[in-house]
Computed example of a mutant assay.
Amino acid sequence: MFIDPGRLEIRLRDEFGGTKGQSRVVVRQAVDLADSGQYTADVGATLTNDVVIEELSDAPEGAPTDRWNWWIGSLEIAYGGYGRFGIQRYQNRE
């Protein structure tokens, strides 16, 4: 696995703030995206923690979930088929 969930969760909060609930749901979606192979097939690169952080850094201000949805929306426009990786709801637990 190229996504290290524990480290990604910490990096998301360090870089973008937000709650544990927000960072955890982004991590779950990132793992699902990596496992699907769709990103690698479309972009030709492996999805890693560094890629997620770099891509979310390009997003406008916002919590990790906002940034994730912005990036997923960009991938949806560019390639299609990414809507299922968007975040609709999550439990906001600290």
Rank of each mutant, 00 (worst) to 15 (best):
R11P: 00
G6L: 14
Y79E: 02
A41S: 12
T40V: 12
Q38E: 15
A30V: 09
S57R: 10
G73W: 01
D58V: 03
E9D: 11
R7V: 07
W71R: 02
L8A: 08
L56P: 06
T40G: 10
Q29G: 05
R89D: 10
V26Q: 05
F85N: 05
D14P: 00
W71V: 05
N69H: 02
I3K: 08
T19H: 09
V43M: 15
I3G: 07
D50G: 15
A78W: 04
W70I: 00
I10H: 03
P60S: 09
A78Q: 12
G6C: 07
R28G: 09
N49G: 05
Y82K: 03
L47G: 10
A45R: 15
V52S: 05
A63C: 00
G73H: 01
I53H: 09
Q38W: 07
T19I: 09
D35H: 08
R89M: 03
I77F: 07
S23D: 11
V43D: 13
I77P: 01
D35L: 11
V26D: 05
E55V: 07
G81Q: 03
A30F: 11
N69Q: 01
G18V: 03
D42F: 13
F85K: 03
Q22S: 14
N92Y: 01
R67P: 03
A59R: 00
R11L: 06
T48C: 05
A59K: 00
T40Q: 14
G37S: 09
R13K: 15
W68C: 04
G73K: 00
W68M: 02
V26H: 05
Q38A: 15
G17R: 02
E76S: 01
L12P: 01
T46W: 12
V27C: 06
V25I: 15
T19G: 07
A78E: 11
E9M: 06
Q88F: 10
D4M: 04
D42E: 15
Q38D: 14
L33Q: 02
A63D: 01
Q22G: 14
E9L: 08
P64M: 01
M1E: 04
G37V: 07
D58T: 12
R13G: 12
E9V: 02
G18Y: 03
V31T: 13
Q22M: 14
W68L: 04
F16H: 08
A41V: 04
E94T: 11
I10A: 09
A78V: 03
S74L: 08
T48N: 06
G17M: 03
S74H: 05
Q91L: 09
P60E: 10
V52K: 02
R93K: 09
